[in-house]
Amino acid sequence: MTVFKNLRKRWRAGIVAVAAVGLGLSAVVYTQGASAATWPSATGTVKLTASKAVSGTLDGGLKRYVGSGALGGDSQEEGQDPLFVLADGAVLKNVIIGSPAADGVHCKGSCTIQNVWWENVGEDAATFKGGSSAKYTVTGGGAKSASDKVFQHNGGGTLTISSFDVSDFGKLYRSCGNCSTQYKRTVIVKNVTVAAPGKTLVGINTNFGDTATLSGITITGDSKKKISICDRFTGNKTGAEPTKTGSGPDGTFCKYTTANITYK
Rank of each mutant, 00 (worst) to 15 (best):
G130I: 05
S228R: 10
F169S: 03
V194Q: 08
A212C: 05
A259S: 15
V18Q: 14
K255I: 15
I15G: 02
D59L: 03
V91C: 01
V91W: 09
Y136L: 02
R8V: 06
T213G: 01
T57D: 02
H106W: 12
G177R: 06
G246N: 10
S99F: 11
G69D: 07
K264Y: 00
A212K: 07
A34M: 05
K190R: 15
Q114E: 15
K149L: 15
G248S: 03
A20F: 04
V29K: 09
G157Y: 07
T38P: 00
Y256N: 00
T43P: 01
S167V: 03
G140S: 12
L7D: 07
G61P: 03
S180F: 06
A53P: 04
N115G: 05
G221W: 13
F169P: 02
A195T: 03
D88S: 12
T262C: 02
C230N: 06
S247G: 01
G170V: 12
R232G: 00
F128N: 03
A240V: 01
P82A: 15
A17Q: 07
F151R: 04
K244Q: 14
Y263V: 01
S223P: 09
Y173E: 00
E119Q: 09
D88Q: 06
Y136V: 01
G131M: 14
F4Y: 11
V150N: 09
F151W: 13
M1H: 14
L86D: 01
G221R: 05
P40T: 04
D124N: 13
G61A: 06
I227M: 11
T139Y: 10
T158R: 12
I97G: 01
K224I: 00
R10D: 14
K255R: 15
N6F: 02
I229F: 09
L86Y: 11
T200M: 12
A126K: 07
K244C: 00
Q114W: 12
K129T: 01
G33T: 06
V46P: 02
S215Y: 06
A146I: 04
A42H: 05
R174A: 10
A196L: 05
G239C: 07
V194S: 07
G130S: 07
T43Q: 15
S147C: 00
A19D: 14
T31W: 06
P100S: 11
G72Y: 08
G216P: 03
T2I: 15
I229W: 09
A13W: 09
C179A: 15
L48F: 04
T2V: 13
V121E: 06
K171D: 12
Y183T: 05
V138Q: 10
T200Q: 13
K255S: 00
S51Q: 05
S228Y: 11
V16K: 11
G89S: 09
L172F: 07
